[in-house]
Design a protein around this nucleic acid. Structure first.
Lengths: 210, 210
DNA sequence: GTCTATAGCTCGATAGAC
DNA sequence: GTCTATCGAGCTATAGAC
């Protein structure tokens, strides 16, 4: 009983080390620039040993891409579900934005690997990641549909454009924000304020919005 | 007189073919994945010939990165400068957003190569592109400072966060928007409306913005 | 200006020892 | 589970013909 379990624990630990190393390297250098030798070295093993845990470099990158989105999806879904049903639309969306930010930087090796290399990965890898991406987009579409049904959303707003802007603009902060030099919660608050209320004074050229 | 000029024209044309080919390939596959052979083949020549025009692969990518930002910078600066000094803040910023979108997709090989590979390129290449990036950011900071001085901006807004969100969210559309299947000007209008006025109805939970 | 040929490396993946 | 050793391929950059 203990022997097989110990073996499995060791294998699992090695798998995780490989994935962590791969995510960090993909983020830094892109997909093609990272050699299996480099991944193996960062995980503390030889190149050949990686093939005991994964069939190919592509299988590794598929797992890295999926784990990044899954972590953000779980964080947003759980925090929003924990709110009372009476919560205002601004509170629900603000909570989702904060959770996306928090998970984004907590799992930044995986999330920024995803943001950076998704467009450069073989088509088969992209296809394997697509359902996970679509699932996260659907989570936000549901949140925004409920806010609109409650009458909280300006009718002029294209909700799909808003969802794309929300995810796209927050993910773009991975390229410049350093959580060691600033507070992620502050950043989330500033982004939420702009996304929900915009740049301009309420009276300023409201005609432009129509 | 005509002979040297003809030679120079040929060299210039080859340079442009190399840069166009490199930008498109970098966008598709990332920096490291693109071989000099592939660039040369797409430009209609052999690998060795590329070294007559450029010293190295790094020199090619520096030029690709700079040209992408320069095209957007020029378009935004010219369109905003052409407005009357009496133009409202919303019109100035909306014009800048539309020009950024238009140039972004007009020179999309260069602009999306920049967005995608900047984070994965050797440090020396990033350093060579940094002043050009900073220059474009300064252009927007000036536009937003003038809007704030005119009293058009909500005091609660962090203008640096807004500038980062504006550029980051618009550039992120390169990953999903297809200008052959939709109108870039429409997209620009939807993004401008959200950035300027936000998602929510004017009365809806204004306290959240503070 | 573009060509061919090639040097010196590094790559993904596999085979088989331990 | 991890190792070493290696195959065949592709890479950047250079050298020199035309």
């Amino acid at each position: 009983m203990t022997a097989p379990k110990g073996r499995k624990d060791k294998a699992d630990a090695s798998r995780v080390r490989i994935l962590d190393a791969a995510a960090a390297l993909f983020r830094e250098r892109g997909f093609a620039a990272v050699s299996l030798r480099a991944i193996a070295a960062a995980a503390g093993m030889q190149a050949g040993s990686v093939y005991y845990h994964f069939e190919s470099k592509e299988q590794i990158v598929v797992e890295v891409l999926n784990l990044g989105i899954a972590a953000v999806h779980r964080a947003v879904a759980e925090s929003v579900a924990a709110l009372p049903t009476s919560a205002a639309a601004a509170e629900v969306i603000g909570t989702g934005i904060r959770s996306h930010f928090r998970a984004l930087f907590q799992f930044s090796a995986y999330t920024s690997a995803n943001v950076r290399i998704y467009g450069q990965v073989p088509a088969a890898v992209r296809a394997a990641n697509l359902p996970v991406r679509r699932g996260y987009e659907a989570l936000w579409d549901g949140i925004l549909d409920r806010a609109a049904a409650a009458g909280a959303v300006r009718p002029a707003v294209d909700r799909r454009a808003f969802r794309l802007m929300l995810i796209g603009s927050i993910n773009a902060t991975l390229e410049w924000f350093d959580p060691d030099r600033g507070d992620v919660a502050d950043l989330a608050g500033r982004y939420a304020a702009i996304l929900l209320h915009g740049l301009l004074q309420p009276g300023e050229d409201a005609a432009w919005a129509s």
